[in-house]
Amino acid sequence: MIQDKDHILLDNYIEGVLSFDEREKLENRFKDEPELDLFYQEQLALIQGIQRAGKNEMSQLLKKVESELPPIYVADKGRVITLEEEKKPKQWIYIAGSIAAVFILVLFVLFSSPSSTKELYAVYFEPYPNIVSSEQRGSKEMVKDAMHFYDLGDYATAIDLFEKEEALSQLERFYLANTYLANNQTEDGINTLKRLKGELPVIENQISWYLALAYIKMDLIPEAEKELKMIIESDNSYQKKANKILNEID
């Protein structure tokens, strides 16, 4: 039977916090006490199992994030392919697709009026994907529920729930801003995003992107241009879209 003090001793040994003498003494005991040695081996395996489970959980989270992102485009010998197309490489699909695209473009140019800022907003705006798993979101029940309604597209209920939570984190406020924008409360969205500026460096470009779109919707073109130019200055995934939209509003 393993004594309680040996449990603590083994934990400290595994954590590497024993002194040289203590370590040596314990290692000698492993040789003489097979039960203790077996217990130690089991303890190591248990820890590895727990760590593997943690790693797999994080890996699943990243896969979920990846699955909700737009496909990546890669130039391959002069043509453009996507992840899905890569899996079914049939030449005729590209040709048919290109012809259809050209046809639609011609129709669009012939019959459509120049895009208004509201149309531009409608084309580019898409609420930011929910990349936070509910298990990881902490204990804020209200926020969990708000994100649930956000996922369902019931933005009015999501706003109601977000606003009931007293202390929203920066990322939660970013989702609240998106919810305002999706619910046509553009001014609230702008104010929330403006307050977030500089507070969360890892999503600075995302904040600028949504702020720019909101400004476009409100016809505040110089403000939108300022945000878009900031996105273009750094190397990031919004750069191309920002360039494109900047050309369109110019």
Binding site: M58, L61, L62, V65, E66, L69, I72, I131, V132, S133, Q136, R137, S169, L171, V202, I203, N205, Q206, D235, N236, S237
Partner: peptide, 15 residues
């Protein structure tokens, strides 16, 4: 952890 990690994931993914 997961929130910030996801943001970093998105930020450098394409490049």
């Amino acid at each position: 952890q997961s929130e910030v990690l996801s943001e970093i994931y998105i930020e450098y993914r394409e490049e």
